[in-house]
């Protein structure tokens, strides 16, 4: 379980951004979460609440957008969705590939704020 420490980083990072913008109040944090990031969405959501306690972000929401895994398929010469994380092959043509081009993200992409 490392979701709590990830959640604490998210809170710190969001607060830093808010401070830099003149102390706005954060209502929600938007996160892009890759399916290969090693972080579990549900665990992160409950950890987030804990991490917000006694911080200016208390009561704020974490909005998670899950990012699917894309691989680069040489056969198709294109980025393709992976069949599943248990089966790393092109969802179009079935060629196995380990070349991951998307799906490891753990990115804060937006803040809903009130002035």
């Amino acid at each position: 379980m490392h979701e709590l420490s990830i959640a604490m980083s998210i809170v710190d990072l969001a607060q830093e951004e808010a401070d830099r913008r003149g102390g706005v109040q954060i209502k929600a944090v938007h996160l892009r979460l890759g399916l290969l990031s090693g972080v579990v969405k549900d665990a992160l959501l409950s950890s987030y609440e804990m991490a917000c306690e006694d911080t200016p972000l208390q009561g704020s929401r974490l909005v998670v957008e899950e990012v699917p895994v894309l691989i680069f398929c040489r056969q198709c010469d294109a980025q393709r969705p992976v069949h599943s994380t248990q089966m790393f092959c092109c969802s179009e043509c079935g060629t196995p590939t380990g070349e991951v081009v998307q799906g490891k993200e753990l990115l804060v992409v937006g803040l809903e704020v009130e002035d």
Partner: peptide, 10 residues
């Protein structure tokens, strides 16, 4: 509320 775009790797 308004939305601020950021791009920060956690």
């Amino acid at each position: 509320t308004r939305m601020i775009e950021v791009r920060q790797n956690v």
